[in-house]
């Protein structure tokens, strides 16, 4: 941790079927992760419009995470594949906005991976803390 006083706001879009359930399992298993993460439930990772990510990062979020089912396990057959290809586009768009592309990540967490969920959240928060506040933060 480089910046002890920096308390980032991180949004995590979690798909209803895998990652949101994985987050619940982290809870049931009492696996702690930083309080900086705020979860927004979406039906599928493929539902998250790139504008949502860009808006969040330009309006004060320090990091945005999309979490979906593992490839091949999508409840909607291939929504996560769509999210994956979109993620690459989002990274390019972030460059145009002058936002470090590390501020956005896409991760796969299944409903049975409470431990992984907590770990991903810890890692990402750590990474965002190292990056410091978003350039768009006033």
């Amino acid at each position: 941790m480089t910046n002890n006083n920096f308390d980032p706001i991180i949004l995590s879009f979690c798909c209803n079927w895998c990652s949101y359930a994985g987050a619940d399992l982290a809870g049931v298993s009492r696996l702690p992760y930083p309080t900086n993460i705020l979860i927004i439930r979406v039906m599928c990772s493929g539902m998250v419009h790139p504008n949502l990510v860009i808006n969040a990062l330009t309006k004060g979020a320090d990091g945005v995470l999309i979490c979906g089912c593992h490839i091949g396990d999508c409840h909607y057959l291939e929504g996560n594949l769509k999210a994956q290809s979109r993620a690459e586009a989002i990274k390019l768009m972030l460059q145009d906005f002058g936002i470090e592309d590390e501020r956005f990540r896409i991760e796969w967490v299944s409903a049975s991976e409470g431990e992984r969920f907590a770990q991903v959240m810890k890692d990402f928060t750590e990474e965002i803390k190292n990056l410091g506040p978003s350039p768009y933060k006033v």
């Binding site: 979406v42 039906m43 599928c44 493929g46 539902m47 419009h49 909607y76 929504g79 769509k82 979109r86």
Partner: peptide
Amino acid sequence: CKGCGTCMATC
């Protein structure tokens, strides 16, 4: 339609 929203994120 099952409501996955892939269309919404593409539009």
